[in-house]
Design a protein around this nucleic acid. Structure first.
Lengths: 186, 186
DNA sequence: TACTATACGGAACGTAGGTTCCGTTTGTCA
DNA sequence: TGACAAACGGAACCTACGTTCCGTATAGTA
């Protein structure tokens, strides 16, 4: 791949990432191209459709989150604390991510077919952390990974809104982690 | 207002309500008009924009939820139970509602300016129930009405998705209500 | 430095969908 | 029942946006 192609691809990803996160999917391709300093033709050579561009961004982010989950599974001692730490990490990194995924599915783009094994992988990674916490008896046994994704997604969305106070994320996180605890164990 | 106008307005609201809830905002105006059995011109005489149509639907639903909150404040004895009952009611009625609101705001429509006092009213209604529960010492004092809206909104969205299991809503609700309880009280 | 494949830019295209306009229909009232 | 205002239907309009195409520029190489 030519040097300028590599550079432009990176620029496009960065510009699209910021644009989608800040303004949602409505941002036209031309605008993203302009902000990235390239022409629309260049956009389409790197990403054949808008959907593909979104999938590329999501993949990058989710893969980082999956890696973080694997790290925690391997290194952390306290399963309950590891899960909470991971939820906090998702809250930090996942705000744009969750908004993006929601926006795409809302707009009728089929990200599942564009990046088919993304959600399963993410669910599986979270599932490993969740399972360990459940085995340790600190988290309700009936909770499923997808439930957690939904709840933490809600916290992400709230945090992402410009009109919301900065403490909302942590506050929601506290409610969720408290709610996860096994009723008996307290 | 002429009789046929009243009839058509109701038909439009019903058709739009079903269409938005089932297929999201992507549904074109012509399609909604067709399903309602009217022409597009009629649509636009009743609702000057698509945004106004969405606002009208949301308003109807949210007003019903607000009335329910007021009823619970007036009638319920146990503040904690009343709050939980209300959250369950939102989960039942609000699934389409929350999806709709999210979809509109995602698509760049400014529902806040179209129906400016809707969210404040809803927040206030929920706030009255929340406050009573907090005064009774059964709910964490730092939780705010908007937090609750976000969490229950997440549960609504999950429940609304076709690929999700039917028990997800109640399960999430259980996590949320457990998380709300004052740490000391258990 | 000359040559070539690769990549670039942006004008032009096609389409989808929101909105407007106006001739026709219909409810209402005397 | 006749007149009139209110409401209707849907063709036409217009804008916005995703996508394609092709002439031009440029990185890599001998």
């Amino acid at each position: 791949m030519r040097a300028d192609a590599v550079r432009n691809r990176a620029r496009i990803l960065e510009a699209a990432n910021e644009a989608f996160a800040a303004e949602g999917l409505g941002v036209p391709i031309d605008v993203i191209a302009q902000r990235a300093g390239v022409g629309v033709g260049t956009m389409y050579r790197h990403f054949p459709t808008k959907e593909a561009l979104g999938a590329a961004i999501l993949t990058t982010k989710v893969e980082a989150l999956i890696a973080e989950a694997d790290r925690l599974v391997a290194e952390a001692d306290d399963p309950g604390a590891a899960l909470e730490e991971y939820l906090a990490a998702i809250l930090t990194e996942g705000t744009a991510c969750s908004a993006l995924a929601g926006a795409f599915s809302e707009a009728g783009y089929d990200l599942k077919s564009a990046a088919p094994n993304l959600e399963p992988q993410m669910t599986a990674a979270l599932g490993r952390l969740l399972e360990r916490a459940q085995e340790a008896g600190v988290v309700r046994p009936e909770v499923r990974p997808t439930d957690l994704l939904a709840l933490i997604g809600a916290a992400c969305m709230v945090t992402g809104r410009p009109d919301r106070d900065a403490e909302a994320g942590p506050r929601l996180l506290a409610v969720v982690t408290a709610g996860l605890r096994s009723p008996a164990g307290g």
